[in-house]
């Protein structure tokens, strides 16, 4: 098993673990963290890929992309956290409750 494969498999594992958390954990902070774990997984895959190029020096482009990705993830995480905080202050809980559209449906006219 090459180094690349280890990175890739670890990345995939993180991705799946994150997805699992995202699905099952109701708390918003957990969900945001789960997403971060998934992102981490993706970055690992990227880093692994950088090594796959048949040259002694790793390909710099994936690293550049990972950096960009990290920036994007950090900012969106920050925004998500702010949103979660705001939701907590508005509703007193940090979870996605059932959206109000799911009230008891009844036959409507038309």
């Amino acid at each position: 098993m090459s180094q690349t494969d280890i990175y890739t498999l670890a990345g995939a594992a993180l991705f799946v673990i994150g997805l699992y958390g995202l699905i099952t954990r109701p708390h918003l902070i957990h969900k945001i963290l789960a997403l971060n774990i998934m992102s981490g997984g993706v970055f690992l895959v990227f880093v692994g890929i950088a090594r796959r190029v048949m040259s002694p020096d790793p390909d710099p482009l994936p690293h550049a992309m990972v950096l960009t990705g990290i920036v994007v993830t950090v900012s969106s995480t920050a925004y998500a956290l702010a949103l979660a905080k705001r939701i907590y202050s508005e509703t007193g809980m940090a979870a996605l409750d059932a959206p109000d559209v799911i009230e008891e449906p009844e036959a409507s006219s038309g």
Binding site: L22, L28, K31, I32, L35, S76, Y79, A80, L83, A84, I87, T91, L96, D97, P99
Partner: peptide, 8 residues
Amino acid sequence: VAAMRYML
């Protein structure tokens, strides 16, 4: 809440 769902 809708925004949060959308965000996630």
